[in-house]
Nucleic acid binder design. Structure first.
Lengths: 346, 346
DNA sequence: CTGTTAGCGCATTCAT
DNA sequence: ATGAATGCGCTAACAG
């Protein structure tokens, strides 16, 4: 007990010091109108002077906790940080606090204790910002208590969870593949993310479909699976160079893997975009400064986090509904960012 | 009230269902020894069956909250994410929860309400993982209530706060500058971070000292201030090329800025490392795949987060002290990572 | 406009 | 080994 609760100044102390009842103090704290301005002023002053901080804990026992839970995985990935940034800012702006939990790895099945801890803290809602990998989500859905607060599921398959906010991976991937075709590339390979990720499947599906729609062949060996890391981009590209010699462009499912491609191309003196077009996905801040600058797809993950918070708050206080988050499934658009890694005429 | 507290099953419900008093349930929850194993078994079973979750809120009112607060800034920077990762894992492993706050920007003076919110939630300690910028910290120190829980200050100047965990920026920067000198570079420029950051000042100080120790001149125009972004690395390098034509190497204060340097060098067909050596700081996962791979300084920010949690927990439960976090100021070593951007003979 | 009574869910005394 | 009373800090429901 290094930081004793006992010594803290409570509502009772303030009441005594002001010569009023605790109830009146409570009213001031909660910005009620039914307090004379004289009393209010005085109480406010005393609270300031005594350095009084209402216990959020005690308040949460009688009313809403004003706290949201967030579950993430693998914070070291830039995307998650952007999302989390949107979440923290939106929550703060609305007077909400955040309880953060991180899964030790993407495929961890250990989310149950995390969720239970959040429930124990009486969060009003949970933002699940970890990827949907394999069957982990369904398992949870089945095993979990029905006492669960509203959950917003980020980035995953819209149909798998009741409330989902996701990015339009398909159209983003389709348009970047289409862009490669428009640039004259004809043998476009794909380095996908792990195929148990919904995002990976969407991006690959769009790539394949765009080729098909253009009347281009989609050979089996034109696609290979990476794991989002630059290292995997490097090794996958190494394999592609062998198994798909006609290849004249690569669409990597994220910018990090595209960087790995750029790196091996640099080693082997492959000219980009002349001999080989390279495209990524995510538009991390660095990709504009790759050599050459990378064509990629921007997604506003910050906004995703913002909307998640607003949706959850809308749900727990139905009086003030937020028009931006109607419905149970929202898909945000992405945006093609064309740079030198795919523009031959430049 | 979308998620009513009322319907939750409480300790009372469990007691009734088990035909015992609430105290006995409480004892089981707290793993006390003075409960017959028969009773315990039964209670455990009923708790499971009723899907009972003790209210962390109510418990926190009577004992430790088992919650830590974390204040970060600019999550989009990779370093912070690594630190946060270390924090979440360490906290989770010890049964602690985390309340996360993010400053809207690095130089925000708005930390006071954030800290107060954490205090209101009765956190047992606060990890301040935002940079020390200008006078912001001192201002807070003065204005803040004395009711503040123990705080661990990360990455900042060891002397400015009572408890500080930091990286040895000086020796990291010294050794990478020394490495450049050993490679035969003689006109080594520096692109620093914002000079109101302690890290920036340390890195610059070490760079300057290493040059001095080697008997090399340190002209005024050899150092220029960036803002950590690749964009600033690019523009700073552009200036350096003009103001320091003899320059044959650059030490950028982080990898992102080094990437900006690499990019402009690529544009201008400057050979690296032949004509120009380039070094960074941080060793982000991508820097190994830059073209060419970047020489940089690794810092174990994950461990920094881990230690911060352990220090705080040690402080609030003095019974079980953690030998790894004795003392009030710890400085972790860094590690030179030599890659092709500075190795001429390769 | 203000005060009184009661109780949120749990844990800390003390009993037995 | 278990139970009864009491209170953590706050607010809802009533009263006046």
């Amino acid at each position: 007990m290094g930081f004793p609760n006992r010594s803290r100044v409570t509502i009772k102390d303030v009441a005594k010091a002001c010569g009023v009842s605790t109830q009146t103090i409570s009213r001031v704290i909660n910005d009620r109108i039914d307090v004379s301005s004289t009393t209010r002023e005085k109480i406010l002053a005393v609270m300031q002077e005594m350095d009084y901080q209402p216990s959020a804990l005690a308040r949460s026992m009688r009313q809403n906790s004003k706290t949201l839970g967030v579950i993430v995985a693998e914070l070291r990935f830039v995307g998650i940080s952007s999302t989390l940034n949107g979440i923290t800012q939106a929550a703060d702006a609305r007077g909400y606090s955040l309880m953060l939990k991180e899964l030790p790895s993407f495929d961890s099945m250990e989310m149950q204790p995390l969720i239970q801890s959040l429930i124990a803290h009486r969060v009003e809602g949970i933002i699940y910002a970890a990827p949907e990998v394999g069957e982990n989500w369904k398992t949870i859905q089945r095993n979990l208590s029905k006492q669960i607060p509203p959950m917003v599921y980020l980035k995953g398959n819209p149909s798998s969870a009741p409330i989902t906010l996701s990015m339009d991976n398909y159209s983003g991937a389709y348009s970047i593949t289409r862009h490669l075709i428009d640039q004259g590339y004809r043998h476009i390979a794909h380095i996908s993310g792990p195929m148990d990720w919904w995002e990976s499947r969407e991006r690959q599906r769009a790539w394949s479909r765009a080729l098909f729609d253009a009347g281009l062949p989609v050979p089996e060996y034109a696609s290979i699976q990476g794991n989002w890391s630059s290292a995997s981009g490097y090794t996958c590209m190494d394999s592609l160079l062998k198994q798909y010699p006609e290849m004249d462009a690569v669409f990597a499912a994220n910018d990090q893997m595209a960087l790995g491609v750029l790196n091996i191309a640099w080693e082997k003196h492959i000219n980009i975009p002349g001999q080989l077009g390279v495209a990524g996905f995510d538009d991390i801040p660095e990709s504009k400064y790759f050599s050459p600058p990378l064509t990629t797809v921007y997604q506003d993950l910050n906004k995703l986090g913002d909307l998640a918070v607003r949706k959850l708050i809308s749900l727990s206080s139905p009086d003030d509904t937020d028009p931006a988050v109607q419905g149970n499934s929202l898909m945000l658009p992405t945006e093609l960012r064309v740079r030198q890694s795919t523009t031959r005429q430049n």
